[in-house]
Each structure stands twice: as structure tokens, then as C-alpha cells.
Design a protein around this nucleic acid. Structure first.
Lengths: 197, 197
DNA sequence: CGGAACCTATCGATCGATCGTTCACCCGGC
DNA sequence: GCCGGGTGAACGATCGATCGATAGGTTCCG
């Protein structure tokens, strides 16, 4: 028996998956690269063959999923037309769907963001700020056009985003509600928060 | 120079404060007890004189603040009377005030909960569940009495709680809004989420 | 066609640093 | 003279990282 678990060649993905599991269960500093390698069915050296180190594993995970969220938001808004309520619904849908389809990465990014190297963090902070801008512009535009009636757009935005993001913390894929229904519920909540007529 | 920074006798509190700072900045596994002791201006041995170990530092921090939150909720509801809207406002006020007055402990508890020993966690999970019950009973009661009109009380509750809890992640004590104003804003948001007439 | 050269994917062994914890000891005040 | 508050040195374990070696595959040249 030499290579039974990993079918030779699937090393990189096996390690990435193992890192995702370990970071999710124990956090960045709580995970050891030895445990990650063992979980992947590979040696410690194989891990260094595919990645440049522990930090690289974390950064790759967070970067990839953050980029996906940003891309989903962009696409959703592009297809949403002009109506403020429709645009808010689009952003809620993108966020809810993302938090569920990338539930593990979401929780990792939320709690391990601070452990990113400054080099990685800078660019990701920029994307995070850009996403916040999307939400803020949308809500402020809705208020300006009289579609929304909230006195404090910033707080309404933070409340809606927090509610959507929190889904990653409690949703159970198998037992929970179907995703489209959940999207409907959170869209309704968001519209109530901004007091949409 | 022997004990210049710590005024002799304040050892326990100095260590607790240092642990709170370090856990908040770097997380549980990212903090070393050597750094905590140095931050407190004491030796590593002094830390073990006052606490039984690293886990004890974390558990004490989370336990104490979780108990305070639970106590605040109880008191708020006891003084709130019978009206559903007033009771919801009371719980929102208790939560918002707590998240700000214990901002650091809130973020620590949120991200380091999983690092608690099973022994500590069991009891705290019970308190967390009890607090959830307070919110759930309140919302369901409001719906049953016709004061709230939300179709999905569970989702409304989760949305409101998530929004209030998130305050700990972004509020800046010196630059931000005064606490009573913030309480008012989040009470209004909560009432909109449950569609209170 | 044969084999030397090279590449890819993986391994075991090991490095120095740091981790949480323990222990034996000390100093000053009641 | 005891005891509360404190120290420094040391323990074994584990950490992230690096090293040289190697089995199997592919390429290329004569």
C-alpha cells in the first residue's frame, strides 16, 4: 500500500478540502498543517508541494470565496433592472444563496479574517468595502426616490446584511427550509426593514 | 524595577484584562499565555497563581459576560409590563446596551465559543438556549395576540437578534452614535421586522 | 528502439522556535 | 514564622518549515 486514499494527482484539491474542514472546525491557529495533511491522506511534504505554507491555504480559501460573493452581487444587480425593491431583492438573494452554498467558507472568512497577512488583507478589505458600497448605494437610492422610507439608511443596511449573513451560522442544509423559500422570507424582511411601500 | 506597572495586589484583574485584550486581538489559539502575562506586567508564573490555566482565562471571560447578558434580559423583561411591543423594545434595549458595554467580550464569545471545554460549554449552551427562548416566546406571543403580523416568527427573531448582535462588530464607542439613540433606531427596526401595527 | 535526462508527486527525517504547564524557591508584611 | 504574591528555570510536546531522496512518468536524442 502506497497511495490508497488519494488517487495520485488529486493532491491539491484534497489538501484544500482538508484545510477547509480543519479551519472550520478548529480555526486557523487551532489547526496544524500536520493534521490537514493527514486529513487529506497525504504527507506534510506534499502539502508544501502544492501550497507555499499555512497562510497560503487560508488566503486561497478566503480569497476565492470572497471573489465569488462579489461577483454574484455584481451579476445580480446587473440583471435586476431599475426598481429599488427589485434591486434590494436581488442583493438579498445573492447574499442568502451565497451564505448557504458557501456556508463553510463564510464562517471561516468571518472568524479568520484577522489572521490574513496584511498583503492579502488589503485587497480583500477593498472588495469588502466595495460590496458595502453596493448595499449602501442601493438603499440610499431607494430612499432618494421615495421607494424606501427609512430614516437611517446606514442602520437599515447593516441590519439587513447582518440578518442575511447570520444564516451561515444556523442553517442546516438537509433539515432546513429550501433555499428559494428562505430567499423569499429574507427579501420580505429586508423590504420591511427599509419600509418599502 | 520589580513591580512598577502593576500596583501590587491587582494581579488577578491585570491578568484578566490582558487576556481579554489578547483574545480579542489574536483569538484563543493565537494568544500565548506568555504574551498575556507580559501584557499584564507580570511573570508567567503569576498567571498560574491566579488562574488554573489558559482555558480558565477564556472560560471566566465568556462565562461572566454571558451571565450578565442573561441577567440583563431577565431584568428588562421583568420591568417591561405586558405589551408585546414594549417587551420587544426591552429585549432590544438590553441586547444593544450589552453588545456595546461588553463589546470586546461579545466578539470573543462569538468567535471563541468552540474553544471552550465541554464542561464549561454545556452550561453556557443552556443559558444561550434560554435567551433564545426569551426572544422566541416574546415574538410568538406578540403574533398570537395580533400585535405582530409576521408569518415566520422564527426568521423574524433570528433577523432581529443578528442585527443587534452585529453592533459589537462595527460600533466605535468614541465616534459613534450615543447608545440611547442607537437603541431607538434598532427598536424601530425590530418593530418593522415583526410588522407591529 | 534504447536509455539518459528530466519532471511530477510524494515521502521520511529533522530543524529551531514556541507552546502550555510545572516546580522549587524567594521576599515582605502581619 | 507563616502565608499571600511573586519569580526564573525547566519540562515534554507540538508547531511551521525545510531538506534530500525516490518511485513513476514523459521527453528527447542517437
Amino acid at each position: 500500500m502506497t497511495t490508497a486514499a488519494v488517487p495520485r494527482g488529486g493532491g491539491r484539491e484534497a489538501i484544500t478540502r482538508a484545510a477547509r474542514e480543519s479551519f472550520a472546525e478548529r480555526g486557523y491557529h487551532g489547526s496544524s498543517i500536520r493534521d490537514i495533511a493527514a486529513r487529506a491522506g497525504l504527507s506534510l511534504s506534499a502539502l508544501y508541494h502544492w501550497h507555499s505554507g499555512k497562510q497560503d491555504l487560508l488566503a486561497a480559501l478566503i480569497e476565492e470565496s470572497t471573489e465569488e460573493y462579489f461577483r454574484r452581487c455584481d451579476e445580480a444587480l446587473r440583471d435586476a433592472g431599475d426598481d429599488p425593491a427589485a434591486r434590494l431583492g436581488a442583493l438579498v438573494r445573492a447574499t442568502v444563496e451565497y451564505r448557504i452554498s458557501r456556508q463553510v467558507e463564510s464562517t471561516i472568512a468571518a472568524s479568520e479574517w484577522r489572521n490574513l497577512d496584511p498583503a492579502h488583507r488589503e485587497r480583500l478589505d477593498g472588495m469588502r468595502a466595495a460590496a458595502t458600497r453596493l448595499w449602501a448605494d442601493l438603499v440610499e437610492d431607494g430612499v432618494a426616490r421615495g421607494a424606501f422610507r427609512c430614516e437611517h439608511p446606514g442602520d437599515a443596511r447593516r441590519a439587513v446584511v447582518a440578518a442575511c449573513n447570520a444564516i451561515a451560522h444556523w442553517y442546516e442544509p438537509d433539515r432546513g427550509l429550501a433555499v428559494p423559500d428562505l430567499v423569499d422570507r429574507y427579501t420580505a424582511i429586508a423590504l420591511r426593514v427599509v419600509d418599502c411601500r
